[in-house]
Write a protein that binds this DNA or RNA. Sequence first.
DNA 1: TTGTTTTATTGATCCAGGTCAATGCATTAA
DNA 2: TTAATGCATTGACCTGGATCAATAAAACAA
Lengths: 249, 249
Amino acid sequence: MTQLGNVTPLFQDLAKVEHEHNLACQECSLYRLCLPLGLHNNDLIQLDKIIKRSQSYSRGQPLFSTQTPFNSIYVVRSGSFKTTVSAVDGREQVTGFYFPGEFVGLDAIYEQAYRSNAKALESSSVCELPFDILQELGTNMPQLQVQMMSRLSKELSGDKSLMFLLGKKTAEEKLATFLLSISRRFQDRGFSAREFQLSMSRGDIANHLGLAVETVSRLFSRFQDEGLIEIHNKSISIRDSEKLKALCG
Amino acid sequence: MTQLGNVTPLFQDLAKVEHEHNLACQECSLYRLCLPLGLHNNDLIQLDKIIKRSQSYSRGQPLFSTQTPFNSIYVVRSGSFKTTVSAVDGREQVTGFYFPGEFVGLDAIYEQAYRSNAKALESSSVCELPFDILQELGTNMPQLQVQMMSRLSKELSGDKSLMFLLGKKTAEEKLATFLLSISRRFQDRGFSAREFQLSMSRGDIANHLGLAVETVSRLFSRFQDEGLIEIHNKSISIRDSEKLKALCG
DNA sequence: TTGTTTTATTGATCCAGGTCAATGCATTAA
DNA sequence: TTAATGCATTGACCTGGATCAATAAAACAA
């Protein structure tokens, strides 16, 4: 067994460091990645008041599904989540993975109903933002509205890139792109870009990239043989990020 | 040559009916599909003032590209557009088709730079919304902000469906889904859901659905043989929308 | 601990849809 | 009208990645 897991803590470990994630926005280590960024101190205190904190979810537990009445959007506080859209025949598409500071449930705003399902990938926690109160708050807090729009737009442009990936990239390019995307997001959160734990299964990765599990498994093995990565179960170490970048297309 | 083209006018013809598309929001036939929906009369007049109208584009002309400095978002007024994201190696993914009342350029807000390219598919016109002024206007017009967020969220949930399509659907399901999506959008705009003109090429359709042109062509022929549709060049007539719906998966 | 279930890996085979090639048909230009 | 160009259709063939099958190795439960 490799020791990678000890080198870079899982997101859930960060939560523990933060006194069981009870910190207000002002003291939260996610501040610069999160919604409150750019709010004036007064506004921040207002926003802080409406947030329901310390909601915890264990591995596999749903945050919401298309059956859940829509009341809130969520920001990941620790851990990670996946979202899926599914058809009546049971087919599912993993539409995204969400890490601390990222919003989940934004696609529900238009229909005022969740259009996807969200599940915790590991022990995780969220900040819950009751949408009607958030809306109300936005009425006399334009900076908050700007932030929200900005977030929605960011997810939109990420989705367009994903469309390119799904429609035009080869299996190899898809997996290389995925690895570097995860790596970058770890880095943005102050973790190592080189060594981390994948919280999602091979099945989730494959599904998200429009591939079969077997293909992902084979590619991981090949990337390892070629010295691009070292992988053992969920522990990944990026060995040659330049070559990996070159494979992204 | 079939007469379908005379049964249902192209969107560009609608524009002519509207006195060369110089109408203000209040009189615009797109009102109920567009941004101003739900604004109070006073606010509407304000919004109306900042809109640059009557911008016309001919077939193939770019509305913006990733090279264009970001200043505005656009609403299609007549005609239609496609957006693409492209890689350095020249590969392109058609990320969407846009019809009257639909927003183009929303994914630019986050980076304050266009992340995709937009091109007119036929003679078309847009309403241009200078983004900084729109933002400013939103400051004391919460209803406008709500509308904008709603629009962003709508596009988001459309993109998730498209991810499912790209990642999980068969070629047949993809094309059936595409046809019904276009049909529904024509209907929403007061046109026939059964007979209409496709403004995009087979190549654009194929690209958008993650297929080869040849596959799209073969499927159109098969759908016609099976009595689901009648197609002649760009004129389409939906013959059995129920069976088509059953093919969507 | 031991059994049970889930997840991952690896090999062998297959097929949906891509690629290549030839031809037909529209649209545009002169 | 004719020529030129680009888009669409159809057929023949091929391949990247799916599917099927067999183990192996984790994760979990009792």
